[in-house]
C-alpha cells in the first residue's frame, strides 16, 4: 500500500483487525457462514493433509480476493461469475502443480480435493460478498482471515480424528505403549468419513454454547 493510504488509515486499524480476526471465531466460515464444507471434511483423517489443505485454501482465497478486488471496477457484472471462476481456477492450477512438485505424497492423498478448491464456496462467497465491493488491502486481510478460520476448524477436526482414530499426531505415536497393554484400542470409527460430520457438529455445539448469541432461532 502507498504512503497516502497509511496517513488516512493505519494498516492495522481496528476495522482491519476485525476483518482478519473475526472469521477465526464469531464469523467462522465453516461453523457460522456454512461455507466450504464440501472439501473440508474428506481431508481430515490425518493432520498433515489437513494442514496442507488449509495452507492451499488460504493462499488461493487471499490472492483471489486481492486480484478480484483490484479488477472490481473493470469486471462487467453480467460475466463476473465466469471471471471469478477463471481467476480461481488459474490459482488452483498453480497450487496443484506446486504440491505435485514439492509434496507429492500429500498431493496424492488429497487427490481430487485440490481441484475442488475451485468450487469451494468460501472462495466464491468471499469474492461475491467482500472483494467485489472493497479495496485491495481489506480484501487481502479478509481473505487471509477466512482462510485461517477455515484452516483452524480443519486442523482441530484432523487433530482429534488422528489422535483418537490412529493414536498418532503428525504420524508420530503419542498414545503410550502401556495403555495398549491395559487394553486401550484405537477407535476405528474416527477414521470413517461420517465421524468428521459428527465432530463438526460437536465443535458447533461447543462454540455456540460459549457464545449464546450465535444460537439459531427455529
Amino acid at each position: 500500500m502507498s504512503a497516502e493510504n497509511l496517513e488516512r488509515e493505519p494498516l492495522f486499524s481496528a476495522k482491519n483487525k476485525k476483518l482478519l480476526l473475526g472469521p477465526i471465531n464469531k464469523d467462522n466460515p465453516i461453523t457460522i457462514q456454512v461455507l466450504g464444507i464440501c472439501s473440508a471434511l474428506a481431508v481430515t483423517v490425518k493432520l498433515e493433509p489437513a494442514v496442507v489443505m488449509a495452507i492451499s485454501v488460504t493462499v488461493v482465497i487471499a490472492v483471489s480476493n486481492l486480484v478480484i478486488s483490484l479488477l472490481r471496477n473493470t469486471i462487467p457484472p453480467r460475466i463476473r461469475i465466469i471471471v471469478q471462476l477463471v481467476v480461481i481456477a488459474a490459482l488452483v492450477i498453480l497450487v496443484d502443480q506446486f504440491l505435485k512438485a514439492y509434496v507429492y505424497d500429500v498431493s496424492k492423498q488429497l487427490s481430487v480435493f485440490v481441484g475442488l478448491i475451485i468450487t469451494n464456496c468460501i472462495i466464491m462467497g468471499r469474492l461475491e460478498a467482500f472483494a467485489m465491493a472493497n479495496k485491495p488491502w481489506p480484501s487481502l486481510l479478509d481473505g487471509i482471515g477466512n482462510g485461517i478460520g477455515y484452516g483452524i476448524i480443519l486442523i482441530i477436526i484432523a487433530f482429534f480424528r488422528e489422535l483418537l482414530g490412529s493414536g498418532t499426531i503428525w504420524g508420530i505415536h503419542v498414545i503410550p505403549k502401556f495403555l495398549y497393554d491395559f487394553g486401550y484400542v484405537n477407535n476405528g470409527m474416527m477414521i470413517l468419513p461420517p465421524m468428521a460430520l459428527i465432530t463438526v457438529g460437536i465443535i458447533i455445539w461447543v462454540q455456540r454454547s460459549r457464545n449464546r448469541e450465535l444460537i439459531e432461532k427455529n
Partner: peptide, 9 residues
C-alpha cells in the same frame, strides 16, 4: 446450541 446447523451435521 445444536439447533439448526449443528443437529443437521
Amino acid at each position: 446450541p445444536l439447533r439448526g446447523l449443528g443437529i443437521t451435521f
